[in-house]
Amino acid sequence: MSEHTAKIEWQRGDAEFTYQTYSRNHTVTFANGHVVESSAAADFMGDPEKVDPETMFVASLSNCHMLTFLAIAAKKRLVVESYVDNASGVLGTLENKKMAMTTVTLRPAIVFGGDTTPDAATIDDMHHKSHEHCFIANSVSCAVNVEPA
Rank of each mutant, 00 (worst) to 15 (best):
S2M: 08
A6S: 14
T102V: 08
V51Y: 07
A42F: 07
E81T: 09
K129D: 00
H4C: 03
D119S: 08
M126K: 02
N86T: 15
S62R: 04
S38L: 04
E16M: 14
S139I: 00
C142R: 03
E54D: 00
S88H: 15
L91Y: 06
V35H: 12
T18Q: 06
Q20W: 12
L67H: 05
V51S: 07
P108N: 09
L106I: 10
A40S: 14
E95R: 13
I136V: 01
T27G: 13
F44D: 05
M56A: 03
T21P: 06
V36G: 10
H128Q: 10
V146S: 13
L70N: 04
A71Q: 02
C64Q: 01
C64F: 00
A149P: 14
G92H: 02
T93Y: 10
T27I: 13
M45S: 13
T116D: 15
P48R: 01
P118C: 05
D52S: 01
E54V: 00
F30H: 08
V80H: 09
A87R: 10
M126T: 02
N63Y: 06
D119T: 09
K76M: 03
R77S: 03
I72Q: 00
M1G: 14
H128T: 11
F57Y: 01
V28G: 07
V104H: 05
E16F: 09
S38E: 04
L61H: 03
K50N: 06
V84I: 15
V90C: 08
D43M: 03
E49G: 07
V84P: 14
D14Y: 06
G92T: 07
S60N: 00
D115R: 11
T27C: 11
M45F: 15
F44C: 04
E37V: 10
L61W: 00
S82T: 09
S2A: 12
G114S: 04
E147V: 14
S62W: 07
E3Q: 14
L91H: 07
P108R: 13
S141I: 06
V144Q: 05
Q11H: 15
F112M: 08
G114H: 03
A59M: 11
F69M: 02
H128P: 04
A120S: 12
V28W: 08
L78M: 03
V111D: 12
A143D: 11
H128D: 07
